[in-house]
Computed example of a mutant assay.
Amino acid sequence: MKLNYKRLGNYIRQVDVRNRDLVVNKLLGLSIAKQFITSIANTTGTDMSTYKIVQPRQFGYVPVTSRNGDKITIALYEGESPCIISQAYIVFEVIDETELLPEYLMMWFRRPEFDRYARFKSHGSAREVFEWSEMCEILLQVPSIDEQRKVVAEYQAIERRIENNRRLIATLEETAKTIYRKMFVDDIDVENLPKGWRMGKLKDIATFAYGKMPKEKSKGNIPVFSGYGIVGYCTTPLYSKLHIVVIARGDSGSGRIVRSPQQFYLTNLAIAILLNDEVYRDFIYYYLSSQDTSTLRTGSAQAQVTINSLEEFEILIPVKEVCRSFYQVIDTFEKQRILLSKENNVLVRTKDLLLLKLSH
């Protein structure tokens, strides 16, 4: 046994309380992001009395691991009132919170090492399952309760800062959308456009470039951007300024319009829009975001967006002076958004390092 490591089964116990009297109607699910989420299951005609009740500060986890990729679906319930989850899930709780904090244990579950361990210990043929007995055999460090509180407080402070930054970014985005609608949507008749405005093709004001995979990942501090998010870091950027990116591959997101980091390396899942004149940048982003860009998809086996479909996409082209005015206003928002996004990138990496330290 590793020095200072304890058997998890000594600190947790399984809970199986059913919704017999139908007193709880808050149905939740669990996600691979390790969170309780609103359930999307069709429960018409379902006997909800067999569902399991989860109390605040209890855990739920899905024993089946073979369909989750590399993530184990497990979460700490942080709601204020009880909820119910599927009877196929396992509910458990910490026996004595003066010895082990649920929040500290949840930090342990968020470690990539836990996911790898749980997948390795999963068994089965048709589907692989991480049994309760295997959960109990996990070895973890259990420092003093004061040390646990300190680590949890540090982790939660980072999470709060990240969430606050996300709210600020959302506020900036809503304000920018309002300005866009006022300048380019409200009172604009495409059949009777203002002088100098016209309908054209996206290729009239932009060129395009497919992303590619970097030679090195997990080194340096330049984000490797897939369109879906940052998937690693490298030493040399492919682009050194903000770009508009179109997700090119992936059934869940192809055609979606996103902004890139300030400096980044773009993977082969996305296409960069390279504008002939920077003043069109923000207009193009909000215009494309307001359109049904799913029409850009081609292919049957796997939906994807090509440069050819982007080139031929019909678009409103206002006079440059109006786009410049919009750019100048939105650029202030963009600079603030970039600062907040950079801070969140650093905070996320700090969270990851904090989780890594738990096992050292």
Rank of each mutant, 00 (worst) to 15 (best):
S81H: 15
W108G: 04
G79C: 09
P102S: 08
G79W: 09
I90V: 14
V91F: 03
P102N: 13
R110V: 03
E78D: 01
G79L: 05
E103K: 15
E93C: 06
V91P: 03
D96H: 09
E97F: 06
W108Q: 12
E78H: 07
M107S: 06
T98S: 07
E103V: 00
L100E: 10
C83M: 14
L76D: 09
I90E: 02
M107C: 13
I84L: 08
P102V: 06
D96V: 00
D96P: 05
W108C: 12
W108L: 11
M106F: 00
E80S: 08
E97H: 02
E80V: 05
Y89I: 15
S86A: 09
Y77P: 12
P112Q: 00
E93I: 03
T98Y: 04
E99P: 07
M107G: 05
Y89H: 12
E99R: 13
E97V: 09
I90Y: 02
I85A: 07
L105G: 08
P112T: 09
D96R: 04
V91D: 08
S81Q: 12
L105P: 06
E99M: 13
M106N: 03
I85K: 11
V94C: 04
E93W: 06
A88M: 14
W108Y: 15
W108N: 10
I84D: 06
L76I: 03
E93A: 13
L100G: 01
W108R: 06
T98F: 09
L76W: 11
Y104Q: 03
F92M: 11
C83A: 15
T98M: 02
M106L: 08
E78C: 01
M106P: 08
P82V: 01
R111S: 14
S86F: 07
L100D: 09
L101N: 04
E97D: 03
F92G: 00
M106R: 08
E93K: 14
L100S: 07
E78S: 01
G79F: 08
V91K: 03
G79D: 05
I95D: 10
E103A: 14
P82Y: 10
I85N: 11
I85C: 11
Q87Y: 15
E93D: 12
P112S: 11
I90S: 13
S86I: 03
R110Y: 01
Y89F: 15
Q87G: 15
V91M: 05
E78T: 06
S81V: 13
L105H: 01
L101G: 06
S81E: 15
V94D: 05
S81W: 11
L101H: 05
E97T: 02
T98I: 00
P112E: 06
D96W: 04
C83T: 15
I95M: 02
R111W: 07
Y89V: 15
D96F: 02
E78Y: 01
S86C: 11
Q87D: 15
R110N: 12
S86E: 09
T98H: 05
A88L: 13
V91N: 13
Y89S: 14
D96Y: 04
Y89W: 09
S86H: 05
E99I: 05
S86T: 12
